[in-house]
Design a protein around this nucleic acid. Sequence first.
RNA 1: GGGCGUGUAGCUCAGUUGGUUAGAGCGUGUCCCUGAUAAGGACAAGGUCCCUGGUUCGACUCCAGGCACGCCCA
Length: 1045
Amino acid sequence: MFKAVSNKVDFPAQELETLAFWKAHDTFAKSLAARREAPEYVFYDGPPFATGLPHYGHLLAGTIKDIIPRYQTMRGHYVERRFGWDCHGLPVEYEVEQELKISGKREIEKLGVDVFNERCRGIVLRYSGEWREVVTRMGRWVDFDRDYKTMDPAYMESIWWVFKSLWDKGLIYKGNKILPYCPRCATPLSNFETNQGYVDVQDPAITVRFRLVDAPDTFFLAWTTTPWTLPSNMALAVGPRMRYLKVLDGQTTYILAKERLGVYYRKPEQIKILDEVSGAELVGARYTPLFPYFADRAGAFRVIAGDFVSTEDGTGIVHMAPGFGEDDYAAALANKIPVVCPMDEEGRFTAEVSDYAGREVKEADADIIRRLKHEGALVHQSTIQHSYPHCWRCDKPLLYRAISTWFVRVESLRERILAANQGTDWVPAHLRDGRFGKWLEQARDWAISRNRYWGAPLPIWSSADGKETVCIGSMEELARRSGHPVSDLHKHFVDKITLPSSEGRGPLMRVPEVLDCWFESGAMPYAQAHYPFENREKFESRFPADFIAEGLDQTRGWFYTLMVLSTALFDKPAFRHVIVNGLVLAADGRKMSKRMKNYPDPAKLIETYGADALRLYMVNSPVVRAESLRFSEAGVQDLMRHILIPLWNAHSFFVTYANVDGWKPGAGGRMSEVGSQPTNLLDRWIGSSLEALCAEVTLALDAYDLQRAVRPFVHFIENLTNWYIRRSRRRFWKSQDDADKTEAYETLYTVLLTLSKIAAPFTPFISEEIYRTLRTETMPESVHLCDFPQGDESRRDKPLEQRMADVMTVVGLARGLRAAHDLKVRQPLARMWVVCRDAARLAAIAERQDLVLEELNVKEVRFLERESGFATVKAKADFRKLGPRLGSKMKHAAGAIAALTGEQVEALAAGAALTLQLDGAPFVLEPGDMTIEHLPHPGHVVAAEAGFVVALDTQRTPELEREGLAREFVNKVQNMRKTADLEVTTRIRLEVSGAPAVREALDKHGEYVRAEVLAVACEWRDNTDDGAQAMDLNGHACAIRLTPA
RNA sequence: GGGCGUGUAGCUCAGUUGGUUAGAGCGUGUCCCUGAUAAGGACAAGGUCCCUGGUUCGACUCCAGGCACGCCCA
């Protein structure tokens, strides 16, 4: 006996039981243990931040990260799956700052970096329990107990090794980067932080003049909204292809962009245009500095060319303060202009700018403007309203300034990175050379240091004068060189450690920065294994990964950092195959937003439909090809209805009847006979279809195309439930235990068992339930411990699949006719005709005419090879065949072929060649050059499709009417049985009264009726007062009373 | 401004080397079927395959140029 299976299944509840089973039996561990000696398939799991709860994007990526490893395990590989956590970085620091109600560098350092960091350590895994719960509930198998954390000492030590390896290869250097900086918090901000703080503000907008060295009465005009940067002016920039004018205004000559002239001089008669030049001609001109502070700097105070110069505002000549602007800085480097940055950490002028030393730079704007005015350098003054970034913590306007930063020389690695990228395989394929490849091509040096606290410290120690610098690559090295034992590499430990100088420069101190957390996650392949300190061999065999899967946003995140580091270290990509998922959007097409509540809570959704339904829904969408998905709850329900429920019902059907009959797997012996074929065509057909399914799924999964892998399930389940089972139903009911019945059980059993394995990677829960109900003692205890069904083309029978498709076509046509002419299937009809010109196809249908007759409730089918009175034949040109031969004559030929008479078509079909006159030239038409189409004769009950013509005889004799009535009666009783919730085997008694026609039908077909409804007795008596159910049978009154026997 | 992607039915999406009736599901309407079914089936309505041009006997498909939307970068 199989475990009883209800057709009223509660998937979410059942999934919880499955989870409990996996837990109790340690099934995941067993699935790994079973493959311990097998070839390894390497998967790397990208670490999420655990500072928030998982959302649909994580569930989606998690599902993909589950399907492929499950599949590869079933295909005979050992697939280790370790979860990882990204522990360091700003998100954690923010949370702590908010909890402690502190903000910025000064307050953190006042509190103590040790206190702060330990607090970060304390909260970083705060939500890991919830993560584990949700990930597990989704059915994902991943090892949380042996997870890796980027804050583990071993992980951090490997990061140091990575860093030092790059250092030794000369790939690390120190430079400057212009970053938004908050003077109050004394902290640079990331781009992400900056983007959330734009506010509309008013700023001064002044135009000042710079005197040319070679022509003291001539001035460049430049415009700025940050007067405080003027003391740091080092150059002026012009657009090399822009046009500039020299205009005489009174005694003075000014130079500005031609396009901006009208803005400065509304009345042209005020001035005289002296000359027009290109920007390129101005380049190199020297001017007198406005302020004396840096007047002695060599190479400064000249005009340079810049592509960033625009004529949207200002004068078309841009004031360059290289210490305070990104373009300015880059242009200064390119043109060998000195960089000055006379501002301290608090945002005050340094002593270099003696007149304003100690004053907040922005606060000095007014005095600077006053002074310029006094000195005659101010040409125009106004204010501007614009959007300007502000600190998200303290709301102060941010200042851009040069920050000392450490870089990886990505630009020098670029060619090698691109070469390594060629060794990767992407889904979707275009990403490799498209978005990702293009990103690589324009990659800049990577700024890897952060002026923060909670992160892996840069392992660099440096003397006070900066002339001696040491990079440390391991704990042991640090301990040896410093004489201090080391067990934790976080900032508050290692900053206390100094190294002796080897050049007599005094103690070397650690540089203050920590690493970008992307550097840490990019080092995951090495660091999760604590390479090279441990696991040397293991790492080497596990690098690069066979497979990773993350979201599209990782093109400039993890995908990138993995690739940079693996190329720098080993000249290889870190992964071979990658599936990139797109964004999960809310149903309204906008981003999912907690505030707007525009999406269903994932936990609730899983409680309603189950994880299998959610998994299938997500995977069966273009979101597994990096396109975005509008998440729809109805879509999840839809998949449950169309795949999971029918699958479950097929299973439930099988178990119910197998138990009724006491059928056991293997009892008939056929199962064990290799290569044995069932005799029943339906059985052979579903077996062949299953083989097709297996082949398609295998092909798609081997290509990492998940959506394509899911699609054939829909078709197969439809075939299984709506054709195989429906047409086989009676085979399972037959009370004699004959060979055909056994074969049906064997077939359905094998199909369901195999199907559970093919579906296991996608829907691990329902597959497990079905498998566990069906398995025998000798089979593995879980479907996930089984091998994936091995495809075997020899088990395909494609001609049979085609023949069955023909039968379905014929049935479909006839059903359409019944519907169109209002002839319900319960009403038997005397005969039908099936016409097909292909005798072989016709014969194949004749062979299975029982299916057709039963499905359509028709007494007899007649087969014809000619349409005779039912339809007219028409010829249609086969464009595919004729097109290449005829070329431009194709159109004419098509017309001529369509115009052929019935006799001509007939003759052609019979094999006679026909000569057409095309544009005066003869053309010999052969039978294969056309296809025959049918036009059903109007007024007849006839339909045609795909070479078949089907006609129905709609005559209803009294005998047919009676039989129809009997079937109607059976239907009503069956519904009553169902309503009364009777077992399928329960015998009943019937008492019936009603119209004479009903009685006649029952008298004539009583035996059939009793057998169908399992009635031991069917009495005709007046039962109207006796709780009988009154109903209408095809217009005849009837009352039925049903009691269990 | 640059890069990449997407654009097919009211909605979500398929569409295989270019071939003449462009498909499925949902939704809508009508009907049917049901002793596996919170099911299923048939039929109907619904399409400028984003636009323009080109190549071709023939373009949803290939090419070029636009437009719209999305993401990334500047």
